[in-house]
Write a protein that binds this DNA or RNA. Structure first.
Lengths: 323, 323
DNA sequence: TTGTAAGCGTTATCAG
DNA sequence: CTGATAACGCTTACAA
């Protein structure tokens, strides 16, 4: 493997000059520059990035911690990161943690070991304070809102409020909600919005621990068993909404006549089912998180709120009058 | 930042001994080992991986080239890679190319520059030969079948055959197919299967360039306009099938009564729509590709075929007799 | 404009 | 068992 010393020898210059040519520095005589380029060509030289990284003390790589790479909205964030990284000729390393704390620790260790210059944490289960103790090794940006951390986030309180308001505008008073992981920051904000804005809020109508299509079907089963049923349900993901809708239709119920349903994410699934949903620009989250983690003044805490949008579909309508 | 020299000084041993302790080598006296560990603790030492990489001449990182990180089946492959990489304490760098050749070249260059030890190419548009010229820099594994390359692949010919046979079993003779990118290896294999196994094969019933839900809706529009319509369509992705099914239902047609549809991938979408589909274990592709690219004898060409499975759903049924 | 030489933080050879 | 010392391949003062 040819290195810059070989080049220097071949071109009859010093390694410094070679390095300068390689990095497009000024102050290199035309002929020498030409000579170096010729040597590069002749010897088929290719720069060894690892050596560059060691020398400059940076890897030009950022790390991404997320629970699942193949969940639609995490993948969408990843795609935003990929886009930005490519544009700025950065690389990114991805770690799938499955929310396992020991796996999350591996990611933090990688930052400490200088494998990456900074970290984007899409979602985590480790206590925030534990994570922040690694900030000494490099900037850390979250995609969920916490106090005193840099974050690019969705205001789930106001996003949920949007959905609840829409249902109330349609005349619904008996409204239920589906939540994801029980104690996540997001779920807490959503629950808060529910209790703040829905007068008839009832814990019987809070369906917790719903994440997948199957969970949606289970919500349907529970709804069917209830004596007092909500006339509308606001979910925390299009997947759950889809499971709910399709299971009820399979049972002969009509959506939205028998139950209004609003999804969350604005995914393909929502589009396919002409779902009313709250759309989130996940790719923008990724892009902003990337730009935050690579700023010069990355040490400064910065919080960027990403707006959500209600998309009207055919799964939520005026409350069905009781005969 | 404390380094092994500091440790050596603190523990009163040589850097070699420190390195040995760090790497759990035998032949280190108990007390010295203890002394080094104490020094590590005291100075809060953390190993610099970049230096390790430069020294051992490997990065313990593999690169992944794929067109879109947020397309369901690419994401599923990625998740398989993520799983295997984590288990073997490897890292992986992801590049999203959007099928842009210049972007694909960037990835190859990264291999040459030793940023990664090997490459997994999920899908590409660059000529295979161009890619293979980079094999001198490290092992390259494809997720599509080509001659003389290591690959983990789906036999699209036989997978499509499965779908076509199923439709014929149901009595269909007028069968159409949807294909993705026109000249991709996969499309060619699928077209071949179509012509080999369907007697009434007709180019009017080959819908090309279909990749998204919207494309599926366009297939529906075209199908509606045709005088001679196929009674069944085998698609190349659940997304396309979903667009087709939902658009036709919207227009008042019944699936499968008016048209039998078979999807491809075995995605969430298929599940939601109770679709008949051909399921592919994409995560397994990722895992196998990873194990191939990290083997000792990675230079040897190895090809691993991944099996596909027909999943019966409610979107394909016996051909509707003409009255 | 150019070059010498000292890092960057490890690993690994080889002699003791 | 242990330790000098030479790599690994590049960047960057500093001096000329």
């Amino acid at each position: 493997m040819t290195n810059i010393r070989d080049l220097a020898h071949e071109a009859n210059v010093s390694v410094t000059t070679v390095s300068r040519v390689l990095n497009d520095h000024p102050y290199v005589a035309k002929e020498k520059r030409r000579a170096v380029k010729a040597a590069i060509e002749k010897l088929g030289y290719i720069r060894n990035q690892t050596a560059v990284h060691l020398s400059i003390g940076q890897t030009k790589t950022i790390g991404v911690m997320l629970p699942f790479v193949d969940h639609p909205y995490h993948a969408a964030i990843l795609q935003g990161i990929a886009k930005s990284a490519f544009e700025k000729t950065y690389r990114f390393l991805t770690w799938q943690t499955n929310y396992v704390e020991e796996h999350e620790r591996t990611v933090l260790r990688a930052l400490a070991q200088r494998e990456v210059d900074g970290l984007i944490i899409v979602s985590h289960s480790l206590p925030t304070a534990d994570i922040l103790s690694y900030e000494q090794y490099g900037p850390i940006v979250f995609c969920e809102l916490h106090e005193a951390v840099s974050a690019v986030y969705i205001n789930h309180y106001s996003a949920f409020r949007k959905g609840l308001m829409e249902l109330q505008r349609l005349g619904h008073t008996n409204i239920g909600i589906c939540l994801g992981r029980s104690d996540s920051t997001n779920s807490l904000a959503r629950k808060q919005a529910y209790h703040d804005f829905v007068e008839q809020a009832s814990n019987d109508w809070v369906y917790e621990q719903t994440l997948t299509i199957e969970d949606g079907a289970r919500v349907a089963a529970r709804w069917l068993k209830q004596k007092q049923r909500p006339s509308a349900i606001l979910t925390a993901s299009d997947h759950v909404a889809a499971g709910l809708i399709l299971e009820l239709r399979k049972q002969g119920y009509r959506i939205p006549e028998d139950l209004s349903v609003i999804g969350f994410d604005g995914s393909d699934l929502a589009e396919v089912l002409s779902m009313t949903t709250i759309s989130i620009p996940y790719d923008v989250i990724g892009q902003q998180a990337f730009s935050l983690v690579t700023r010069q003044d990355a040490a400064t805490v910065r919080q960027i709120e990403i707006p959500s949008t209600l998309i009207s579909g055919l799964t939520a309508q005026n409350v069905h009058p009781v005969h």
